[in-house]
Simulated assay, not measured.
Amino acid sequence: MGDHCRRLETIMVQGCREREDTTGAISTPIYQSATFRHRGLNKSTGYDYSRSENPTREELEKTIAKLEGGKSGYAFSTGMAAIDAVARLFSPKDHIIVSEDLYGGTYRLFEQVYKKYGVETTYVDTTDIEKVEAVLRKNTKAIFIETPSNPMMRITDIEKITSIARPLEILTIVDNTFLSPYFQRPLLLGADIVIHSGTKFLGGHNDTLSGIIVANKFIEELRFTQVSTGAVLSPFDSWLILRGIKTLSIRVEKQQENAIKISNWLNECKAVKEVFYPGLKNHKGYDISIKQATGFGSMISFNVNEKESIERVLEKLEVIYFAESLGGVESLITYPYTQTHAAIPEDIRNRIGIKDTLLRLSVGIENVEDLIEDLDRALNY
C-alpha cells in the first residue's frame, strides 16, 4: 500500500500491513506460535522462532516506527525492558546525562543496576541548556530526557539538546511516553532514539504491559539485544497494543480536552497551591511545547496546601482511581513521593519538586464534570 494519503490517524487505524495476507482479515491475526515450520533445509518462511521474529509483533514494530518517523521499531515486554535494552548500548566508563526529573524506575535502573557495570550518570535539569553543557565530558555518550518530565511536567527543548549532542556524536534519547507520537515526534526534531512505556497511552486501557523503542541509530545492536535477552512482547500483547493504537488519536484528544478543563479548575481551587500542566499559559515550558509538540497531553501534577490532606483526598475520591500507572481511559491519581518516585533519594526529590504534598493525575476520557465534581468533594471538604 502506498503512503501518499497515509497521515498519522490513518496509520494508527490501519497499521503498517506490509506483510501479504491472503485472508483479507481487517484485524491483524494473532500468531500465537512459539515456533514456525521450515519448508526444507535452508528454506525459512522468514519466521523461525517467536523470540526472534513474530508476525504480530512485527506489525506493531513497523507501525510504531512509521508513526514516529523512525527506521526501526522494537517491542518489549515492559517499558523498563525497553529502557534496559537502550542502556545496554553503553560500556563501562561511558557517561550519560539524564533528566533529573524522571520516572523513579529509570533512576533505579541507572543507579542500582548499570552503575555496578561502570556506566556513569549525571542528573541535571535538561530544560536549562547551559546546565547540560556544563556537565558534558569527553566520555559523554548520550543525553537521556523525558519531556514532559515525570512528574513535574518540565519541558526540554529537543532541538536544542540535539544541536549540542549531534556535533559531538552524542546520542539523544527521548522518553516520549507522556505525549505519544500523536502529539510529539522527537526523531523528526533530531533525536536518535525514542522510548515508550507502551503500557500507557499506546495501549490506553490499563490492561497490558509493553515497552517500545524506535531508533534511527544502533539498529542492529538493539535488535541483537532484543533477541539475546528475550524480553520480547508476546503475540497477544502485541495485538492489544495494536488495537489500542487504533483509537490513540481520539483518546488522547478527549483526554487533553478534559485535562485542560481540570487544570484550569485546579488553578482556581483554594485547596491547591500550585498546578503543573504544560497547557497552562503560565507554565514555564508552554512556548517550547507550542513549538515542538501538537498537544499538551493529559498529565497533571499539583501541590495541595497541606500534607495532612493527602490521605483524605486519596480516600474520598470515587470516580478517579488511586492507582499507579497512567495514560489509560480511566482517570488515575498517584502519590509520587511514596509510589512512582520512592526510589529517588529524598533530598533529590525535594530539590526537584517531588514534595510530600504532590499528587499526579492521569486524566481519562470520563465525563469531565464527573471528574471535577469528584476532585471538588475530595479537595474542598
Rank of each mutant, 00 (worst) to 15 (best):
N305T: 01
N216F: 14
S72I: 07
N305F: 00
R6K: 09
S27A: 06
N206L: 15
K261L: 14
L109R: 09
K307T: 06
F296L: 06
P167E: 14
V132I: 14
D3E: 15
K217L: 09
L317R: 09
D94P: 00
R360T: 10
V319N: 01
V304N: 00
A231S: 07
L280K: 05
L280M: 11
V363F: 00
D101Q: 06
T106A: 10
N54E: 10
E120R: 10
Y335R: 08
V124C: 09
K261Y: 06
V329R: 04
K284W: 08
W239E: 10
A215M: 11
K141E: 04
T10D: 11
F276M: 15
E346H: 13
E257R: 08
V252K: 08
L280Y: 14
C16M: 09
A81M: 10
L136H: 12
S289N: 06
E330H: 09
Y321E: 15
G40H: 11
L358A: 05
L89Q: 02
P167N: 12
G198H: 07
I11F: 11
A25H: 00
V363T: 04
V272P: 04
S163C: 01
E308D: 10
P181V: 15
M1S: 13
A75S: 13
I170S: 06
G118W: 13
V227T: 09
D356N: 15
K284A: 13
N176C: 00
V304G: 02
I219D: 08
R108P: 03
E274C: 03
T247G: 05
S309N: 09
E324S: 15
D21R: 01
G15M: 05
A81K: 07
I170W: 06
S289G: 05
E53P: 04
V252Q: 14
S228L: 11
E59V: 02
P181M: 15
I344K: 13
G79S: 12
P148S: 01
G70W: 15
E373Q: 00
